[in-house]
Design a protein around this nucleic acid. Structure first.
Lengths: 218, 218
DNA sequence: ATTATTAATTAGGCATACCAAATTTAATAA
DNA sequence: TTATTAAATTTGGTATGCCTAATTAATAAT
């Protein structure tokens, strides 16, 4: 199996098992990998043989310790590159994801460690995601999705789940950036829209948008 | 055809047509690409269809303007990355080639231009090779191989043809680095070894080594 | 000019990573 | 419990990029 293929599978299994539940289904994984479920079945069987995952057919998949370690290596590479591109080269937070998607497959740990050092060993990337350290240790915070926040409470934006350019450009337009404070005024009963105050301005946010903003209760 | 495959073919055709002659043979190209001649025949037919090369069977191959442009893009990427790794991240000149071999396939011109700018738009990489500019324009110098240098003349080292770690470590050990001045004392008749003086020390150099050192007559 | 020799091509094959269509398995609702 | 629906798997197939072995073409040597 090509190294890049392995890495893309493991990375996405990792993200799915963090974001949703421990056991990952083929259908979701197929969507993330942009391939058909039939191909995923095949790929997972190989990754199982390679001891990267435990794949029980028609049930689900989870990472082995070996697989998790490699997954975290890729996540680290990705987030270090994103941080580097934004901080050192002046790319926008909406541009870095795509480039890092390629750079994360460069096989050289010394390179990543040098970049990390140059950046002062950052713990968060430009999207607010925690960067695993060299050993794969990653900060675990109990931030929540804005979509599950309660009215009248105040929150601080800590990150985003969607990294696409369109989404990030949208957030920027409304000044909904990492670190910003916001208060939930009310929740629209009809469609679950949030009416929030941020930067002294009222903004209405769709449930889909709220679902991709990560906040911390203040 | 995968982009990386295309790029590796074109890059190597470019290097062979500069170093040797305009028309490149399959056998040499196979060696450079580390694949068998039979596979090269197949690859070249495809590159011909894609208009990157003009391939005349059993005769040879040359780049089209389109192909040359892409080849120079790859060469630029490679050399910018090498310079970046050496100058900004402190990698040794013997380490950078391998890493750049991967990095050169990252598809983002803005990235390369930002790196170039950060470095002050360098014209030479750590091995003394000229870096093409954004338009593909590359400095053409008439340096010569040390192996074709004449006794009693003095030269300045301007570059190397082989970029392998072993070779570069060897040169470093003898202080035969870019910029160093040397004088050819004599040429051994028996095996064409060169007896040279560099940094006030006499060094004996094999023809193979001399063939991979590029010098300028002083 | 004929013969070696070396290079290039053809023919037939293999592994990877994907696919669509048909089928099976599991989960959910009636 | 059975019917319905959704997810996962199997089967058979494709394109890519390589390979070896056999053959043909070009080059060099006698």
């Amino acid at each position: 199996m090509r190294q890049e293929t392995i890495e893309n599978y493991l990375k996405n299994i990792y993200h799915l098992s963090i974001g949703n539940k421990a056991i990952v289904g083929n259908f979701q994984l197929a969507e993330k990998l942009n391939i058909r479920p039939a191909s995923v079945t095949e790929g997972l069987r190989k990754l199982h043989d390679l001891k990267y995952v435990i794949y029980e057919k028609s049930y689900g998949t989870r990472l082995t310790p070996i697989g998790a370690k490699l997954a975290l290596t890729i996540v680290r590479r990705h987030r270090i590159w994103e941080t580097y591109l934004a901080k050192e080269l002046g790319f926008g937070w909406d541009e870095v994801h795509e480039i890092a998607e390629e750079l994360e497959h460069i096989q050289n740990d010394k390179l990543i460690n040098k970049l990390s050092e140059l950046l002062g060993n950052p713990v968060y990337d430009p999207h607010g995601d925690p960067i695993p350290d060299e050993k794969g240790k990653i900060k675990k915070e109990n931030f929540i999705n804005l979509s599950s926040a309660k009215p009248k409470n105040s929150y601080k934006i800590r990150g985003v789940s969607d990294h696409s350019t369109v989404f990030l450009k949208y957030l920027e337009k409304h000044r909904l950036i990492i670190g910003a404070h916001l208060k939930i005024d009310s929740i629209e009963e009809f469609d679950q829209s949030l009416i929030i105050t941020c930067n002294k301005k009222e903004v209405i946010i769709s449930p889909k948008v709220a679902d991709n903003i990560i906040v911390e209760l203040l």
